[in-house]
Design a binder for these strands. Sequence first.
DNA 1: CGATCAATTGATAGAGGTCAAGACGCGTGG
DNA 2: CCACGCGTCTTGACCTCTATCAATTGATCG
Lengths: 234, 234
Amino acid sequence: MTSVPQHSCSNCSMREICLPMGVGKQDIDRLENLVQNSKIHHQNDVVIRQDDAFHTLYAVKSGMYKSVKLNSDGEEYVVGFHLPGEIIGLDAIYPEVYTSSLIALTNSVLCQLDYEQLVTLSASIAPLQHQLMRLSSKEINTTQAFQSTQTAEQKLASFIHNLAIRNEVRGFSATELHLAMTRQDIANHLGMAAETVSRLLKQFQGRDVLDIKHREMSILDPAGLLLLTGCAHS
Amino acid sequence: MTSVPQHSCSNCSMREICLPMGVGKQDIDRLENLVQNSKIHHQNDVVIRQDDAFHTLYAVKSGMYKSVKLNSDGEEYVVGFHLPGEIIGLDAIYPEVYTSSLIALTNSVLCQLDYEQLVTLSASIAPLQHQLMRLSSKEINTTQAFQSTQTAEQKLASFIHNLAIRNEVRGFSATELHLAMTRQDIANHLGMAAETVSRLLKQFQGRDVLDIKHREMSILDPAGLLLLTGCAHS
DNA sequence: CGATCAATTGATAGAGGTCAAGACGCGTGG
DNA sequence: CCACGCGTCTTGACCTCTATCAATTGATCG
């Protein structure tokens, strides 16, 4: 893990979906001053440890991270995966400790923001305050989106579709995905066995919905994939 | 559904867990002015319709509500249940429409807050701003708490335990619960069949963990219930 | 006091978990 | 450049949990 000089929000390709969204030119430098040195991580680096005191929010600049929660039995649960432009740590505000550990899935970069400073600043920059609330709200939605009596097939299809959409929003391909996580991570996240993920992916290939080689996925039939999800997602 | 004169936050028994938490005496009347007429609902009243434009947040004053999401196939999913002091609608900020319908499970009362006014006010009352973020953060936690490979038994035990804790925090009994919702609602919320809920409740009774008559539940062995959850919850 | 909805109980079947073995890919070092 | 070893992924066989279907009982309300 290495610290590098401050990056600027104004030059960041994620500024339109990240915290600066809606913040005017005259205010964006006040936000930039708040962004501390970015940190470069390598695969499997542990960035946040669960139960550590919360002081800073993180924004993904590049790469991919996963959040992992350990329960009292030592079993772990993969809460989710984080793409560029996403804010990490909003769930830690209430308990004042991080509720999960954060691990880099590939070479990645994070921006750091002191939470107290950010809240203080947002009181005088209305668009920043709104964006903070919007991002929190979005987080509530994404976490409550799944659940219900879905089959394993629907869950996995929804997961892939969701990844594709998030990729597209970020200006990446909506059909060519690199899976930085293991099958086991996906399975755990969706609450199923890794074997089931493997079998279903093979099945999706057989129906020409997608093509997978190792960690590289091509979505051949986006409409077919949407059908497999069982319902339209946002 | 009836409108009644404004209720005051300062006299409300939920002020220490609801929005006013931490707000000083001199500021609390500014918050009260923002609270519009409370609304009284009866069982099965539909308060919010999914996809309606979002403008106001709600706070439960008394009773119980459920949030229900309809997907494109017409299947419904019970997102959650709302107790006094809880804020409803935070998930609607980002999409700017309500993402689920809100239905009263019993005779209940709601406070209404205009979201734009609340945000504006919070910019000049730091404790209010903090509480808004805290409540959003809490919501993220509760929605992401479940999931993972839990058995039906663990899920149901966790649900009951969670209800008991929330009851206790509100100054109600931690062992005597009134279930305002149907078994089907519980089952749907937990992603299982109503028959499974029925069978498990009977099983919990057989092990003397709890006692149920109709909708009235007594938790006889809180420690035993916690064991059934499979892990310690907050 | 029937009518209706909620809850229980039993029987059956299937989705998916678990266990076990093997294949594949990748990095390391000889 | 190839061989080895480790971790990931795949594939198969089996079995369990829980959904589903169906029938009955119980509660609530006009």
